[in-house]
Computed example of a mutant assay.
Amino acid sequence: MSDTRATTQTVRYRERLWVPWWWWLPGLGLAALIALEVNQGIKTLPNWVPFAVLLPVAVVVLLWLGRTELRVTSGEGETELWVGDAHLPVSVVARSAEVPRSAKSAALGRQLDPAAYVVHRAWIGSMTLLVLNDPDDPTPYWLISARHPDKVLAALTS
């Protein structure tokens, strides 16, 4: 017989890594332009079909780009950072820091360790750095895009 205890987790911080609102105008505009080109190129196709296909495709792509959720949860004495489906217990974090927009290119460029776990979204300026101290894990650190890294770090340490 297995133990099926219900676990309650409290969400301390949650952030969806959406694309900026202004990306929607060029995204839908590009889809409409391509639909217009298809409409003019294929005369036998009803006028509404390219728009009915390509505008929803643009919406789905923009929503898909912002699908990643960053959250900090606590429950049963353990605090965890979740980024999408990946999670990290705070007990293995040795140090943490905010990576400002000005240092982002260096952190992702010449200073990046190839074994690091990186979730980078180009439209988000700042990042959170979590250096790990886990002998069972070859990952030296996590580098995560976050709009409010100070709030992520505060949720991890509280």
Rank of each mutant, 00 (worst) to 15 (best):
M1L: 12
S2R: 12
S2M: 11
D3S: 04
T4A: 06
T4L: 01
A6D: 14
T7Y: 14
T8P: 11
T8K: 15
Q9P: 02
Q9Y: 13
T10V: 14
T10Y: 15
V11I: 14
V11A: 06
R12A: 06
Y13G: 02
R14P: 04
R14K: 05
E15V: 12
R16S: 05
R16Q: 14
L17N: 10
L17M: 01
P20Y: 15
P20T: 15
W21F: 09
W22Y: 08
W23A: 08
W24R: 04
P26Y: 04
G27P: 09
G27N: 10
L28H: 00
L30R: 00
A31V: 13
A31P: 15
A32E: 01
I34H: 00
A35L: 03
L36E: 07
Q40S: 07
G41I: 06
I42S: 01
L45R: 01
L45D: 08
N47F: 04
W48I: 12
W48P: 00
W48Y: 15
V49R: 04
L54K: 02
L55I: 13
P56T: 02
P56G: 04
A58R: 03
V61E: 03
L62Y: 13
W64V: 06
W64F: 04
G66D: 03
G66V: 01
G66M: 04
T68K: 09
E69N: 09
E69G: 03
E69S: 07
L70N: 09
G75I: 06
E76Y: 06
E76D: 13
G77A: 11
G77Q: 13
G77E: 10
E78P: 01
E78F: 00
E78Q: 10
E80W: 06
E80P: 01
D85I: 15
D85K: 14
L88F: 09
L88P: 04
V90C: 09
V92F: 00
A94D: 13
R95L: 09
S96M: 15
A97M: 07
A97S: 11
A97R: 06
V99C: 00
V99K: 01
S105K: 01
S105W: 11
L108T: 11
G109R: 08
R110D: 07
L112S: 10
A115T: 04
A115P: 10
Y117D: 02
Y117L: 10
V118C: 00
V119Q: 10
H120N: 02
H120E: 12
H120V: 02
R121Q: 10
A122W: 12
A122Q: 04
W123F: 07
I124Q: 02
I124M: 06
I124N: 04
I124T: 07
S126R: 05
S126W: 00
T128P: 02
T128N: 06
L129N: 06
L130D: 14
V131K: 12
N133H: 11
D136W: 00
D136N: 03
D137W: 02
P140V: 08
P140E: 11
Y141R: 07
W142L: 06
L143P: 14
I144R: 02
S145C: 12
R147Q: 10
H148N: 08
D150R: 15
V152Y: 09
L153M: 06
A154H: 08
A154C: 00
L156H: 03
S158I: 12
